[in-house]
Design a binder for these strands. Structure first.
Lengths: 184, 184
DNA sequence: TTGACAAAACAGGACAACCGGTCTGTTTAT
DNA sequence: ATAAACAGACCGGTTGTCCTGTTTTGTCAA
């Protein structure tokens, strides 16, 4: 039951946003009653926090952190993620946007607890990339690059490109940005 | 009257978002009645379209397009905008986010007309930057850069950095990204 | 294994507040 | 005199929270 609600909320929050997803819609989609929903998540905010902590964090880990950590280098990892996401969006034919950025945009100014949870995920993401750059430097694969700044640029570029791709419903901008990063 | 409503809606939509800004709140803040509001904007969506077409477009023009067009080069213009925005956010001590990206995130999947209006602003923004790069190339100030890709990267990086700055309530990431763009 | 009991999970109704849109009447501007 | 602008009431529907009652699950002792 709890998992059904989380599954449904994760999808709805990404596709429509938090405010535009009513508890009624989520209950109907998950096939649960008000009593059951409120037993597991006493308030709508509690549900959002659970989605952020359990689902959004996991999505960033799977889409970004794990591939970068496992890649031959940070640059190779970033390139691979951009390409994988662009290919996946092309195949889907629809761009729902980045789960983290979709919620971060909507909720960062709305609630400090939600903002803190979202900020924590951004921070972990950036630290993972910066950590990989440092490992690259120690092993001679990279030099002259500031790890924190590289990480900030990678996360910002991806976040912005996903926003643009969502508005344009076209994943080409991801490839354009990757090419421009390679050139610059 | 009409202008008061637009003023108030522009601020509320940026600060809280469209769905979390009720017409009641906007009316109270603008000091107008329901009759007056609906005379000028028959539906909430019409109000959002007006804010996008008249206020968001103007903000992107003032913050980005005009300075880049007037700069010595596209790269100099991009640098100057990042720095100016970072400085302004530091002075404000608060990050509300980019008016275009805030609404684009919330509304792109919610309504095709709103998405089209937002996409149009992104497109004009990118074209202005790409056009400046082309002018630079013709006058020998730039070479070997793909104008469209450079523009995509500049817009994406700024958009992503503003999202991150809003979540962190800290403008440092704008400077980090600018420095990383300079290095890369 | 069974029965008793408690806790957890679930169903679904009630509630006040809120929402955007519709509409009639009044005021203001031309 | 007429059109535009404005006031504010009304409406049905929606919303998240709160709550009581019922069902299911877990635990324990006999």
């Amino acid at each position: 039951m709890r998992r059904k609600v989380l599954d449904v909320a994760e999808v709805a929050f990404q596709a429509r946003g938090y405010h535009a997803s009513s508890l009624g819609d989520l209950m109907a989609a998950a096939g649960v009653s008000g009593g059951a929903l409120h037993h597991h998540f006493p308030t709508k905010k509690a549900l959002a926090l659970a989605v952020i902590d359990e689902r959004v964090a996991a999505a960033v880990e799977a889409t970004w952190i794990a591939p970068v950590v496992a890649a031959a280098s940070a640059r190779e990892g970033v390139r691979a993620v951009f390409e994988a996401v662009a290919a996946e969006l092309d195949q889907q034919g629809f761009v729902r946007g980045c789960p983290l950025n979709n919620l971060a945009h909507e909720l960062s100014l709305a609630d400090p607890d939600l903002r803190a949870a979202l900020a924590g995920i951004f921070s972990a993401w950036r630290q993972a990339i910066a950590g990989k750059v440092r490992a690259d430097q120690q092993e001679g694969r990279e030099q002259g690059t500031d790890p924190e700044r590289f990480a900030a640029l990678a996360v910002a570029t991806y976040s912005g490109a996903m926003s643009m791709a969502k508005t344009a419903q076209d994943a080409t901008v991801l490839r354009d940005c990757l090419a421009a990063l390679g050139e610059a």
